[in-house]
Design a protein around this nucleic acid. Structure first.
Lengths: 149, 149
DNA sequence: TATTGTTATACTCTATAACTATA
DNA sequence: TATAGTTATAGAGTATAACAATA
């Protein structure tokens, strides 16, 4: 018989399940994780140049070109001319793109409520605090690892 | 100013951070996530045929062919003849592969301990219970969604 | 000279379909 | 006939490098 799963195991399991759940909800709408991520980022930081999006997403500018191409083709974003720099485009959500992000946000809120309700009422505050602490610790670990390579 | 992050947001953040951390630790060793997943699976379920690995990993047999090819080339696994079915191979870890999995397991244990220690001592039990409840809920949600498509 | 986005090229992971050798 | 694994082909996501237009 196996030992009890560690916190790491469980968090990995959560990651896999979230990924599975997200992909499942996105697929019928013809949107991949990477494209949704770009859509989501544009929604949250506002219309930006492809360079800025590349930085925000942590991928190369070339990669953003491909993702924006696909999202333009599917009608979720448009490339608008940059007001002061004729080399650059400003990537902006269409109504369709905005509606899509709003729907996704609503579903996230639903899932969030369900997940929190699945936690015993007396454990909820401690769980929430613990989760925040874990996020902090992971962020710090990664920052440290990147600063001293 | 943004509202406080939801449980969903935080779990997604954890997923992204874990992914980042794992990729970072694997890259210098020349192992991708997908290959490590196969290695890990062989370690946990024991030497298996490629068909069985495909089922365990939730990918196509063709995909397993490619991953095993790469892991054979890097010396982490070998294809042994199946004792009773001459069509099949049994994928087995080499010493190098086993050593690698052991190292990864040790690092996971370390990370797990660090993460749990980052949670306030009084919150730890509730956090652990809450995490288990969330995993259960996610698994149930996905199972339900797959049974009634 | 430096930056923005693109073309060119390549690699990994993934999938489906057709094929070979065995069962 | 059915199964195990492979070849053939395709597509998404990612990367680097070289190049055009513009800053």
């Amino acid at each position: 018989m196996d030992a009890a799963p560690t916190v790491f195991d469980q968090l990995q399991r959560v990651a896999a399940l979230l990924d599975h759940d997200l992909s499942r909800s996105l697929e019928p709408l013809g949107l991949s994780r990477a494209r949704m991520h770009l859509l989501w980022t544009v929604h949250h930081v506002g219309p930006r140049s492809q360079q800025q999006l590349a930085t925000a997403l942590g991928v190369t500018p070339r990669n953003v070109t491909g993702l924006v191409d696909a999202l333009v083709a599917s009608g979720h974003v448009v490339r608008a001319p940059h007001p002061s720099d004729r080399r650059a485009f400003v990537v902006t959500l269409t109504d369709s793109g905005s509606g899509f992000v709003a729907e996704a946000a609503a579903e996230h809120a639903r899932t969030s409520r369900d997940l929190l309700e699945s936690v015993d009422a007396g454990d909820r505050d401690a769980f929430t605090r613990g989760l925040a602490a874990v996020v902090d610790r992971l962020e710090r670990t990664i920052r440290d690892a990147e600063q001293a390579p």
